[in-house]
Write a protein that binds this DNA or RNA. Structure first.
Lengths: 233, 233
DNA sequence: ATATTAATTTAAGCATACTTAAATTTAATG
DNA sequence: CATTAAATTTAAGTATGCTTAAATTAATAT
């Protein structure tokens, strides 16, 4: 029989484990590998702490780990990670659609809530939300069975040609200020916009949204993803 | 400048602190005092751990603590505790009314969520719920300013006379099975019921609910609180 | 091939809350 | 008043994840 320890140690362990697996899943390369230094950077902890924890995650069967080699998720780890993503994004959706929090705040709020939310709560929220496929920033939400909707094929806004019209289908959600700004100028999910002009001197872009013109930087435009509307010139 | 430690230590500290203050607030006597052994029992931890933590809570200004004396909350501790109660009960209300979770599950789910939920989220939920004064079990919900609605004056169900009609205004929410059972027989908040008979041989009570008769034990009846309806015999 | 640099691991120790066992203090009892 | 019991504190150590500094390994430059 397992030795019972105080619940605070279990909470601590679970939170850390979830954070590590989330970071590995999000920041691994196209071959599914990540370096320990990347994990340390993303989590703002020491390299040594990462080495320690990788040994434990390996022992728990969630990752493949050999010294000095890249780290990758096992099948079980993959499933665990996909479930964490699902929980996070459903919580974000709930906070955005039902609670009406500004979308630049939902990411951090969901980060805190996801550790305590039960599977039952997540499933009930999914039902309330009518089984959404994408979160407020356009990222796909895995289903209960782990099936991931396809990321909608999208074009970076800065790659759009002048004169074309498109709708916003995804934005990068890592920067608070970025998201606050773009929503303040009317750029949110499903917003329709037309590129009026590309300005060469600073690579900024002139857009028309609901008949109103505005100028956004190249940096901002490169973090917004759109789908062009068909049959328009 | 404060030494920065990893966020996991802060999370751990906050969770513990909140748990201690909640227990002190809930289980203190009518004079506002609690013994350390009571805290240890309620939290399933050792007496020594409690002594350690009490010193810290006192250092942080949340409690009055002298060795071998009873423990009590400071003004700041009281405010902190009332806010914890508010958050817990609004979360319970949200889970019950909006998410439609069974009321025997909302207590534990709220226990887990309350540590991560921000003040902003709690305030938004309160607004969505239209500023409720009582939680699903009938306990009062403090307002944002700390004002506590009066507990509705209520009678224990087992004290009701035969022939009288009443509505359920509060139930004790500490026992999972109890709450599952009474809701399965149709006894929830605001349920109207009539006491038909008190049986002497086992002190049980015969009730009529929606025209259906049922028998409940004295133990169950003593954990249900009602308000008699006026003008009926 | 060698030297240097960067990445990672190891070893020792720390942050927070807890446990166990022994000691101290208080309360209850005869 | 003495004794016993119960409550609480103290001291030493543990559970979990982390930090710092030194050592090891791998990658890179010459």
């Amino acid at each position: 029989m397992l030795k019972l320890i105080s619940k605070i140690y279990l909470i601590m362990k679970n939170i850390s484990q979830e954070d590590y697996i989330s970071v590995i899943y999000k920041h691994r390369d196209t071959e599914g590998l990540i370096r320990s230094t990347t994990i340390a950077d993303r989590m703002s902890i020491s390299n040594a702490a990462v080495t320690d924890m990788l040994r434990k995650l390996s022992r728990d069967g969630l990752i493949y780990y050999t010294k000095y080699k890249g780290i990758s998720l096992t099948g079980e780890g993959e499933e665990f990670a996909v479930n964490l993503v699902r929980r996070h994004r459903l919580l974000e959706m709930f906070l955005y659609k039902i609670v009406n929090m500004p979308w630049e705040k939902v990411h951090e709020e969901a980060e805190r809530l996801e550790h305590g939310a039960s599977e039952e709560l997540i499933n009930r929220l999914e039902e309330m939300l009518e089984f959404p496929d994408y979160d407020p920033h356009g990222d796909p939400i895995p289903s209960k069975t782990g099936k991931i909707p396809q990321a909608r094929s999208a074009l970076r806004l800065d790659y759009m040609e002048s004169g074309k019209t498109a709708v916003v289908v995804r934005v990068n959600d890592y920067d608070h200020e970025f998201m606050t700004y773009i929503s303040s100028v009317g750029i949110i999910m499903d917003t329709e916009l037309t590129v009026k002009n590309h300005l060469k001197f600073d690579n900024s872009i002139v857009l028309s949204i609901h008949g109103k013109e505005l100028n956004i930087s190249h940096k901002i435009a490169s973090n917004i993803f759109v789908q062009e509307k068909e049959g328009e010139a």
